Computed example of a mutant assay.
Amino acid sequence: MEFRTLRVFVEVVRQGGFSQAARTVFATQSTVSKAVKQLEEEVGLPLLDRIGHRSVMTAAGEIVYRRGLKLLADRDDLSAELDELRGLKRGVLRLGLPPVGSSALFAPVFARYRQRYPGIEIRLMEHGSTKLEDILRAGEIDFAGLLAPMSADFDWQGVRSEPLVALLPQDHPMAARPALRLTDLSEMPFIIFDEGFTLHRLVLERSREAGFEPTVAAESSQIDFMIELVAAGIGVTFLPRMIATQRQHGQVRQVTLKDVGMVWNMTMAWRRGAYLSGAARAWLAMVGEVHGRPDAPPPAGG
């Protein structure tokens, strides 16, 4: 079984189709189809059930996909270890950062890292936490900025903990209160992050724990847009206090939430047991240096 065909199959599943996978692996759709067919012939079982324009994994496909992710990640770890053993002077750091909070938390780390280690190439991608988890689990990045708690598949180092605050229209009766509970807001429409963000799940789970199912007026990935909707009187939204303070709006008021668990815990996460290159360990130490955590790098290998 070749890593090339395995990578193509994994991308077909992850991207949701042959044409999307072809763009990701920089190949033609015909090449991608042939690679998947070759893999099916090697396995001796169909891996995908093609239904119209959609492809659904068979039972065999699910096994190959699950095992394939680990094989590909282990291959990357092997290359990283051997490169370091050869005394590679120039390294690569692969980062996945979320749109929420990265400018305040990680831009200073990024700048200091580049200044100290100019020979390290930094490859950066930005997604919501849900997609970042998938990409990190697949071994395609070294670190991801994720919110705790998270999957046991990952180890992590804390970066910042901030309470969530409610943002209400300034003329709303509850906007003048010093603090609120979620139940006080149960009759208001909620403006929340979309499903790709951990904050989406957190707000809905805490609301249900409080005994109500919120009415969702809008979902978005754009903080400024969400704040403008609040200013227009559409509903209430929730942001980490640090970010809400940075995005002051004349028509919006920030109110503290008293509910337990309405906390934004940002971490720097990596695959449990993964080999961490010198460039990766230097980044983790830099995060600790900038944010006041112990700056000793973890031992190689995790």
Rank of each mutant, 00 (worst) to 15 (best):
F110C: 02
F110V: 02
R112P: 01
R114L: 09
Q115N: 10
R116T: 13
G119K: 09
I120K: 01
E121I: 06
G128S: 03
G128L: 00
K131G: 03
E133K: 12
E133P: 05
L136C: 07
A138N: 08
G139K: 07
E140R: 11
E140K: 11
E140F: 08
I141L: 10
F143H: 06
F143L: 11
F143M: 10
L147K: 11
A148I: 10
M150E: 11
S151Y: 10
A152R: 15
D153S: 14
F154E: 05
D155N: 14
V159T: 13
R160V: 12
S161H: 08
E162L: 08
E162S: 15
E162K: 05
L164M: 14
L164F: 15
V165L: 03
P169E: 04
P169M: 08
P169D: 10
Q170H: 14
D171P: 02
H172N: 12
P173F: 09
P173W: 10
M174G: 02
A175N: 07
A175L: 06
A179N: 08
L180C: 07
L185C: 06
L185G: 01
S186A: 15
E187M: 11
P189C: 09
P189S: 07
F190H: 07
I191F: 02
I191V: 13
I192D: 00
I192W: 00
F193N: 01
F197E: 00
T198R: 07
H200A: 00
R201N: 04
L204P: 01
R206L: 14
A210L: 11
A210M: 06
G211A: 05
